[in-house]
């Protein structure tokens, strides 16, 4: 086999292993009735929390609601499942398998990605059925859902690198990041209306670009060019994947 052939073979092997890890996580953690139900209820409660008493038409809130739903659903499970696997010593199985750390991070992120993609359909379908929220850009919608889900799933896996066996340790750190993101990313208040300092901070938030891309799908009216949103989300995914890989390597040594 040529060197290129061997390389392709190794890439296929790694992708297959990543998919095996994702399948395992889906069976063990995501297909639990309580996880599915709480995942589906989350956007409903978020909607009620932000819609009640506000003068805007609820339809305007649907893209932001989708973005928040993805943020929380994609980044929530790995910070729980990985510490549990550390405690059960099953995580050592992944670390000692003949696969790279990138594959472990990718596999763990894939399950969060698929879960949040599924949950994101709750506000999406509700928006289409209950409110006049026509989709004007299908490509932006697909790109927005896929990239934002993957980005936040990788962020969850990154936080889960912290070497603890207690999910609470990671969730508390994660919430310190996730909650402020909602307020500085143009989800609740349009970017143009937040103070200048807030706008500078928003550039460093992946939620800004995810929300903007999903807004493009519904309103066709966005803060950035959708191509910039896509590039920035891809950049965040690469950064999260790279940093996660380094942290897992460091903490498991």
């Amino acid at each position: 086999m040529t060197e290129l052939g061997e390389h392709c073979d190794q890439v296929c092997t790694e992708l297959h292993a990543a998919w095996a890890i994702a399948k395992k996580d889906i069976i063990i953690y995501y297909l639990k009735p309580n996880i599915i139900v709480s995942g589906m209820l989350f956007p409903i409660f978020m909607f009620l929390a932000f819609a009640i008493g506000r003068p805007e038409v609820p339809a305007v809130m649907i893209p932001g609601l989708i973005a928040i739903t993805i943020l929380f659903s994609a980044s929530s499970i790995e910070p729980v499942s990985i510490p549990i696997e550390r405690r059960m010593k099953t995580f050592d199985r992944l670390l000692s398998a003949p696969i790279s750390l990138h594959t472990v991070v990718l596999g763990e992120s894939m399950s969060g990605f698929l879960y949040s993609l599924g949950i994101a359909f709750v506000p999406l379908i509700a928006g289409l059925i209950l409110f006049p929220t026509p989709i004007v850009g299908f490509a932006a919608l697909i790109a927005g859902l896929v990239l934002t889900s993957f980005c936040f799933a990788t962020m969850g896996t990154l936080f889960a690198a912290y070497p603890t066996e207690s999910p609470g340790d990671i969730m508390s750190m994660l919430n310190l990041v996730r909650l402020p993101l909602i307020f500085v990313s143009g989800v609740l208040i349009p970017l143009e209306q937040i103070p200048q300092i807030g706008q500078y901070i928003a550039y460093f938030s992946p939620l800004t670009y995810g929300n903007d891309l999903i807004q493009a799908a519904f309103a066709g009216d966005t803060h950035f060019n959708p191509a910039i949103d896509v590039v920035m989300l891809l950049l965040f995914i690469l950064i999260f994947q790279f940093v996660a890989n380094r942290l897992y390597k460091k903490y498991n040594d």
């Binding site: 395992k24 069976i27 010593k89």
Partner: peptide
């Protein structure tokens, strides 16, 4: 491994 690290689910 020393612990029986199987997935109990």
């Amino acid at each position: 491994h020393e612990t029986s690290n199987i997935y109990t689910d």
